[in-house]
């Protein structure tokens, strides 16, 4: 019964949001920024599998290095931390981000737009962190392959 209620409520909410596009210009402006934010999320999120894969490859590469090669080991450890930071930044951002409709009870339109602009900057930063950490990891792995 509980599940039926959950599905009924979820379906109603989905139908309400999908079938009745808002005509309120404030809401439309908020939805536009929300969609831009989600587009960035959808561009970056599929890369998280590769972020983790690169991290695993770097860990294996570090294990193969002689214990005396402290410089390269430190370099790899730093690159792994960068990848983890990007992944964690995405996780934290997703856990905290709220759809503008959830803010409407507590904030007026102007403040909601400020909130959304800040969130867009945050997810853009996640995109930058992801791209940079992946690029560094790939460079290191290419260097390791050359020396093998």
């Amino acid at each position: 019964m509980k599940r039926l209620i959950f599905v009924a409520v979820a379906t109603t909410l989905l139908a309400a949001s999908a079938c009745q596009p808002t005509t309120n210009p404030d809401y439309q402006a908020e939805e536009k920024v929300h969609d831009e934010i989600m587009a960035i999320h959808d561009e970056v999120m599929p890369k998280m599998g590769e972020v983790n894969r690169l991290g695993r490859e770097l860990k294996k590469a570090a294990e193969k290095l002689p214990a005396t090669d402290e410089y390269n080991k430190a370099n790899i450890a730093q690159a792994i931390r960068q990848l983890e930071k990007a992944d964690d930044a995405m996780g934290r951002w997703m856990a905290n981000y709220q759809h503008p409709s959830k803010k409407r009870g507590e904030l007026n339109h102007e403040y909601i737009m400020m909130y959304l602009d800040r969130e867009k900057e945050k997810v853009e930063l996640v995109r930058t962190l992801t791209a940079e950490s992946m690029s560094t990891a790939k460079d290191i792995l290419a260097g390791v392959e050359k020396t093998e």
């Binding site: 999120m45 599929p46 890369k47 998280m48 599998g49 590769e50 983790n52 695993r56 860990k59």
Partner: peptide, 28 residues
């Protein structure tokens, strides 16, 4: 985390053969 992603790679290895998408199957 690494174990979860490793097994994801294994499950999705079959899906990758069938698709032109370059990756990101754990979020597909």
């Amino acid at each position: 985390k690494d174990s979860l992603y490793e097994i994801a790679d294994d499950y999705f290895s079959i899906a990758m053969e069938d698709s032109e998408a370059p990756g990101g199957f754990d979020h597909s």
